[in-house]
Design a binder for these strands. Structure first.
Lengths: 223, 223
DNA sequence: TTTGCACTGACAGTTCACTGACACTCATCG
DNA sequence: CGATGAGTGTCAGTGAACTGTCAGTGCAAA
């Protein structure tokens, strides 16, 4: 899960980042409206947490410009306490949820998860790409219809690649997703998981772009 | 059965909670629309009892937002006496049943049970999966037609797995369902119940997906 | 050819789930 | 009131599955 947190207060920003990272998000941050707008417009995030009170371009304007440019990622807006007009304007500008300050970190995490679940979990719980199929309800994986037994880490790695099927995912990002910053492992741990997973799935499912990262190979099985 | 009761009047809330707990529901409560919406959007309930007259966000808005977000749990709406327009609006907003105030607690319990039964079993109170059969009226369990005597906790665990037969249920969720957030037990308590239950049901009924959770094994007895 | 990233198999430590034993609580009954 | 038994949580031990590390190999890019 790739997430952008936009918050100008360095203390809150640090706390928010820590809490979201602890619950498995890969968190990037922006401090002002200009940076936020640029990142949100050029990068692909699964979720954006956006403070409305920002220096430079204010949050509402950022959100409106994203939506005007067709950026559809879910956005969770942080508003000052009691600022009802901000909430209404936020919803109208295209926010998917709002959270009034001050808030407990657990609440932020819960809402973030709910938003992601909602945006991801629409439609069939079975995602397919080429010969590969992942049933996110049963945590089950199959290739060409044949069930493949995968472990917890293997499954998380695979579903992350499936979620970001449209790009090459760097190993650092995969490591962060699997372990978080807290207990970092060596890069080789990731390679070990990949080796085992490839042995189970067969060749050609997970591709490598040397120096950049890994990706799901859609060409396999041509469709 | 996990249930959310939304009611601002503390006296009624207490009575409702007591009555529903006495009939076997695990009851959580919310006092205003904001809390209700958040809980209903982030937690998984088997039933919601919702008073329409609430401070903050009113009940109808809460219900509409749940449905707009794809939350499908059955909702029983409580309306003021004679407020016909509220009932109509409630049904249109996605309520599954309504109950005009004042009401007798027995009636509330009866309707709550009916709603859960309707949403779970398609009319029949007996649900089957593979060799397993659960009679939700009698709280009776049988395997291959042979009655099995189960305790209260075992039954609740089993019926919850039956309710969510289409997915793997994490142990944390099972713990929440069995005990609620209030008095948490160690994960081992769950495993103890599972061991006893499996001994009664025989092998192959309840499956484990290591690192994810538990599920009812439909393949057993093939049908 | 050189360089360095990526891959692999083997191994060992760790974690996870399961299980039996025991203790505690509570209701029932004499 | 005390005995009894069912139900259930906790503890501790076990075995198996999982996974990180290591050491060595392969291979792509420059």
């Amino acid at each position: 899960m790739r997430l952008l947190a936009v918050e100008d207060d360095p203390v809150i920003r640090k706390d928010v980042k820590a809490a979201l990272q602890a619950s498995g998000f890969h968190v990037e941050t922006a401090e002002d409206g200009e940076d936020a707008w640029f990142l949100g417009d050029t990068e692909d995030y699964d979720l954006v947490v956006l403070d409305l009170g920002l220096p430079g371009m204010d949050g509402l304007s950022v959100l409106k410009r994203w939506r005007a440019n067709g950026r559809e990622m879910p956005v969770l807006v942080l508003t000052a306490r009691g600022a009802w007009h901000e909430r209404v304007e936020g919803i109208e500008a295209g926010a998917d949820d709002y959270l009034p300050k001050p808030f407990r970190m657990e609440e932020l995490v819960a809402r973030a998860r709910a938003l992601v679940r909602r945006s991801v979990g629409q439609g069939s719980p079975v995602q397919t790409l080429g010969d590969l199929a992942i049933d996110t309800n049963r945590m089950a994986v199959s290739v060409r219809g044949v069930p493949v037994s995968v472990t917890a880490l293997e499954y998380r790695l695979l579903s992350y690649l499936m979620l970001h099927r449209d790009r090459v995912v760097p190993p650092t990002e995969l490591l962060e997703h699997l372990y978080g910053d807290d207990d970092a492992r060596e890069a080789n741990a990731l390679e070990a998981i990949l080796t085992r997973l490839r042995k189970k799935l067969g060749a050609g499912v997970i591709g490598t772009r040397r120096g950049f990262g890994y990706f799901l190979d859609a060409a396999e099985g041509r469709g």
